[in-house]
Design a protein around this nucleic acid. Structure first.
Lengths: 143, 143
DNA sequence: TAATATGTAACCAGTATGATTACATTGTTG
DNA sequence: CAACAATGTAATCATACTGGTTACATATTA
């Protein structure tokens, strides 16, 4: 997992689009007020989500963004991959010493371990859809 | 998962200590040559591992570090927690707008999701011990 | 044609990371 | 006891990344 807030904000953005599914497109300005950030930050995320095919945007008057698919068909894993580029496992750029038995063999082992950890995280996110998020929000509203 | 290499290097360091279990203590200088980094970087990690009770260090001539426990009793989760402080879920510092239905409710939902993702990653690391790492290294050597 | 929205580039301040130097402290050994 | 060799840690530095902001070209609609 990257140490930034892009995923969290992207889910917030998508949640807004999900709850506003029947309404006219949401502008980056409107969404930014809900997130409490700058509209450009929202547009950057929407651009990434659009390239991943999760969202559609329209320019001009009465423009804005809408979900491209059924919320039940969009997983949080897709959102994560859309906004956070895969940078590979966090290994030091400097290669270890091949003259040491550990240095000579640890690299692929670490890559495997870090890959498995990341896969576990992704499996979790794959099991959650935007429909689940919307349901959780509605449940909290009805308290 | 943090976006740094501390965990990877810490596992490398511990793997060295595991393979040298029957030998005299390893110096930070020696380990640094295997990792291919600066001895101070190694000492910082050894210091954190020591505070977590995974490693013991001795000053002075013929000093150095050794594993504090059986390699089969040290999990990668312990190593991860020792060298990477828990910074909590990566949420924006700016709170969302409580006047928006999404902004008012998304925070605890995001916290839950990010917590579940992190828990999945930790479950994976909990299942791997230093003995497994040592075995993997030996298996690669015997090719 | 005027108004409004997206799409992006450019820039900035704040922060994290890892490498490095420096030095005090501790322990060993001759 | 004196010299040496190791850890422990503070301080500094270059690099990189993040998120916020301004600016402006482009597209779309009324």
């Amino acid at each position: 997992m990257a140490r930034n807030c892009r995923f969290a904000v992207a889910v917030h953005v998508c949640a807004v689009l999900t709850l506003r599914r029947e309404d006219p497109p949401a502008t980056s300005d409107w969404i930014a007020k809900s997130v409490n950030t700058n509209p450009v930050v929202v547009r950057r995320l929407l651009s990434a989500l659009g390239k991943a095919g999760l969202v559609q945007s329209q320019r001009g008057i009465s423009g804005g963004s809408t979900l491209a698919r059924d919320p039940a068909a969009i997983t949080l894993l897709e959102i994560s991959r859309a906004v956070d580029a895969d940078e590979g496992p966090p290994l030091p750029q400097q290669e270890p010493n091949p003259a040491c038995p550990v240095g000579a063999n640890i690299r692929p082992i670490l890559t495997d371990i870090l890959g498995r950890a990341e896969a576990a995280r992704e499996r979790e996110l794959h099991g959650i859809t935007l429909a689940d998020i919307a349901a959780a929000i509605r449940a909290r509203q009805d308290l």
